[in-house]
Nucleic acid binder design. Structure first.
Length: 800
RNA sequence: GCAGGAGUGGCGGAAUGGCAGACGCAUCAGACUCAAAAUCUGACGAGGGCGACCUCGUGUGGGUUCAAGUCCCAUCUCCUGCACCA
């Protein structure tokens, strides 16, 4: 029976919303469930099928939880600051506020059409002043605690977008937004001291339920390494050159040093360098290269030897040359390394190219061929000789360094402090005033929000200055501390700011006095289940965990970690198996599917199409298959008979309740839906079902296809809403069969099947099997060596 | 290079070490129809046999086991993230 989804879907969407069926209650005796999905950036293109898949998982869990009697918070909002709206404004002159409001309206309409059970009274928008007031508040708290600071450094700068980018936003030397080459530029930048939280972020991972790959990615991103800082002296100069190494025990194998081209040592001792021209020429060459090019040529080492300055190895007093080379980065460690060519491949390649000595200090490899990086017995290493594992030798060396005062044990992180500003209009203004006498002064908390001023020309300033810098009424102000004339910070916060704490605001979205009321936080936090994309695992997730941990440390929130459990959906690929993209023309618009097949079909399909975590190509025919399934469910209402169903069908129903219930918890939505399809096939085979059991089936399907099930329930005279009816329970006894069919193997090969009592003893099962004509023919004339019976599973005869 | 994951029919994909291919799609056949669509029923890994059945089969090569898609070793390919990180 084809049902009229165009009529029934809007009908139920309206009713649910009018009756506030999915409203979360701030006070309740029920257990709470906080399900979260990554809120969208409201782009002009509207929703993508990827959004549908991302939200459908927690949607199903949230609906199931409500039916299980939980007080459920399942909110949605909009992460609406960002470049696309601003770029659109530059092109068209339409204010980002206007475009953003339009897009939010469009997204909201679309999400309603899919029937997501969001609590629409808690919608937040990061660009609303009532929201970003609190983003600014958190920034000021960080500033107060010394976690926000301003520093002049080389930054990743996108010449096309005219903005400073974080390392996260400029991976591979390309701008994350426009994919232009990123250049290095010296600039005053705001930083958040996320590195101070590196260890806390690592430790926190041990307490949360994230998939292993997500944890691993975060661990890699933080990139903690243990090693030592060692001071090398310069020959004849009272100066120390500090290096970081993870293998201080190879110190006796050091034959040269390398410093980054940007290392300050060069400028400081320029007068001592005899080949300054060559050095400067090399530096200029490096500056031209993008970070990307610098990391491409892994094998061909380049560099220049510093003529006139030599270093001294602090453990043996040997003089060694110093080079500058671009394989050493200023941004990691100290920007200088001790080179141990025998045991580091990069140093080895460099030594070969420049004819430097290679001294073996660890036995086990062939250093005439390549560097040996494995473990082994220490040689040529004075007091370390004879040590045979790096753990002991490193420890011994660090003790020695510390005793002599030439080095210390230490750690390094790949993660850098978070560059926290953009030279753009459409972002949260940074609430800081620059005063000539007082320096950087916080805008007083009571003056928040610091509103974005009105603007007509959204073009960025030249030299990457924020458009806000042109508005004199905004820029010129009085210093909150001394009252003298001062200037406001004109940079805005990066896109990631608003999303770093949004899950807290859902809990108390309209609170004017606090970020969120304490007792509500205590009730709802932490987020019980958070689903989103893999692309946010190392940026958004780490940033928001950092902010949340900070808020915990200052007593604002009650849990150190914001998310108890995290999952991630796999991409939906185009029908051609490629990533969906406008240029390839393989984009599927979810609203086209709603229009043609209905929201229930769309929802069911995105969860049925494959393993939830895996990338799966879109298939229009499979969508039709899901529609066919729902039509069959509707047709089933004509099979209702007022008589009991067979014990066999009842058993199948109970097994289905069990499977669907557990599959949803494990995010195995595809097999949950498959089980429902199988049950429908079974009911068709019987041709009859009673009303109560039919309703039980509808309940199981309801989280996936809420509209059609609600409609069918109503047509049967069901009371209230099926969406909040009680989740079916199964009777374990009814999921167990009295008899079972098991395979019988002879020498591991299946030779037949037999039907046995489920609790049959081995002897009984053996005699049933031996009585089977076919099995017997395989045993005939052979010597029985062994009989293996795995109860209820399999029987295997081993014969000779 | 490092880390994580995946290789199963024509396709998407199922299988706590125990009958590989659930479920869906596509395809084919039958029913219904004047006909088509829709719907319903059935077949559907490959090879062989009239047939009950037999042989082979989960990237590749080994191994453990009564029994391997699943565990171990090696190897190839693909995806995702990080990457001259000292």
């Amino acid at each position: 029976m084809k049902y009229n989804f165009k009529k029934i879907e809007p009908k139920w969407q309206l009713k649910w919303e009018e009756d506030k069926l999915f409203q979360a209650k701030d006070k309740s005796d029920k257990p709470k469930f906080y399900g979260l999905v990554e809120f969208p950036y409201p782009s002009g293109a509207g929703m993508h099928v990827g959004h549908i898949k991302a939200y459908s998982s927690i949607e199903v869990v949230a609906r199931k939880r409500r039916m299980e009697g939980y007080n459920v918070l399942f909110p949605i909002g909009f992460d609406a600051f960002g470049l696309p709206a601003e770029n659109y404004a530059i092109k068209t002159g339409v204010h980002p506020r206007v475009v953003t409001d339009q897009n939010i309206k469009h997204f909201s309409d679309q999400m309603r059409q899919v029937g997501f059970s969001f609590d629409w009274d808690r919608v937040i928008d990061t660009t609303e002043v009532d929201y970003y007031k609190w983003t600014q508040w958190i920034f000021l708290k960080m500033f107060e605690k010394g976690l926000a600071y301003r520093d002049k450094t080389l930054v990743n700068y996108c010449p096309s977008c005219k903005v400073v980018l974080s390392n996260e936003d400029s991976q591979g030397g390309k701008c994350d937004v426009c994919h232009s080459d990123v250049v290095q530029k010296s600039k005053d930048v705001w930083y958040l001291r996320i590195t101070e939280y590196a260890d806390k972020l690592l430790e926190g991972l041990e307490t949360v339920d994230y998939p292993e790959n997500i944890k691993q990615q975060q661990v890699n991103w933080i990139g903690k390494s243990k090693g030592a800082f060692v001071d090398f002296t310069l020959d004849g100069i009272d100066e120390k050159l500090k290096i970081y190494t993870t293998r201080p025990d190879t110190l006796f194998g050091v034959t040269f040093m390398v410093i980054a081209p940007e290392h300050p040592l060069i400028e400081k001792y320029a007068d001592k360098l005899k080949n300054l021209d060559a050095i400067n020429a090399y530096k200029a060459e490096c500056a031209k290269k993008t970070e990307f090019e610098r990391t491409q040529l892994v094998k061909d080492k380049t560099g220049v030897k510093l003529e006139g300055i030599e270093a001294v190895n602090p453990v043996n007093g040997k003089k060694i040359p110093i080079f500058i080379a671009d394989y050493v980065m200023m941004g990691y460690g100290t920007g200088a390394i001790m080179a141990v060519p025998a045991h580091d491949q990069r140093d080895y390649d460099f030594a070969k190219a420049f004819g430097v000595d290679i001294i073996e200090v660890i036995k086990g490899g062939d250093i005439s061929q390549e560097a040996y990086t494995g473990d082994g017995e220490m040689v040529n290493s004075d007091f370390l000789n004879g040590y045979d594992n790096k753990k002991d030798s490193i420890q011994r060396m660090i003790e020695e360094l510390e005793k002599k005062g030439i080095g210390t044990g230490g750690v390094q992180y790949k993660m850098k402090d978070w560059a926290f500003n953009r030279q753009r209009y459409w972002g949260e203004p940074i609430p800081i005033v620059h005063c000539e006498t007082c320096g950087n002064v916080a805008v007083p908390f009571e003056e928040l929000p610091l509103r974005l001023p009105e603007l007509e020309n959204f073009e960025p300033g030249t030299d990457g200055e924020s458009p806000l810098a042109r508005i004199e009424s905004f820029v010129n102000c009085k210093c909150p501390k001394c009252g003298r004339d001062a200037k406001r910070e004109t940079d805005t916060m990066p896109q990631w700011a608003g999303s770093s704490w949004y899950f807290l605001r859902y809990i108390d979205p309209h609170n004017d006095d606090e970020l969120c009321a304490k007792e509500k936080l205590n009730y709802w936090m932490p987020v019980d289940w958070y689903n989103g994309g893999m692309e946010h695992v190392t940026r958004h997730m780490i940033y928001s965990r950092f902010w949340h941990r900070f808020l915990y440390d200052i007593g604002v929130v009650n849990t150190p970690e914001p998310y108890k459990k995290r999952s991630a959906q796999g991409l939906i690929l185009g029908p051609d198996g490629d990533k969906m993209s406008k240029s390839k023309g393989n984009v599927v618009d979810p609203l086209d599917i709603v229009e043609e097949y209905g929201a229930d079909t769309l929802r069911t399909y995105v969860l049925f199409m494959g393993d939830y975590g895996a990338a799966t190509p879109w298939n229009d025919n499979s969508v039709k298959g899901c529609k066919r399934f729902l039509d069959r469910v509707a047709t089933m209402s004509e099979m209702i008979k007022n008589e009991p169903i067979s014990a066999e069908l009842e058993s199948k129903l109970h097994k289905t309740i069990k499977k669907v219930s557990s599959d949803i918890e494990e995010m195995k939505f595809n097999t949950a839906i498959a089980a429902l399809m199988t049950l429908v096939n079974d009911i068709y085979a019987e041709g009859a079902i009673d009303k109560d059991n039919y309703i039980t089936f509808l309940k199981l399907l309801s989280p996936f296809a809420p509209h059609i099930t609600e409609e069918l329930y109503e047509s049967l005279g069901g009371e209230g809403y099926l969406s909040v009816a009680e989740w079916p329970k199964f009777d374990e006894a009814k999921t167990v069969d009295a008899t079972k069919e098991i395979g019988v193997q002879v020498n591991g090969k299946v030779r037949g099947t037999i039907v046995i009592p489920a609790d049959g003893e081995k002897d009984e099962v053996l005699s049933i099997a031996k009585a089977d004509e076919k099995i017997a023919s395989f045993l005939d004339g052979k010597t029985l060596v062994k009989e293996i019976y795995v109860p209820g599973k399999i029987l295997n005869f081993v014969v000779k």
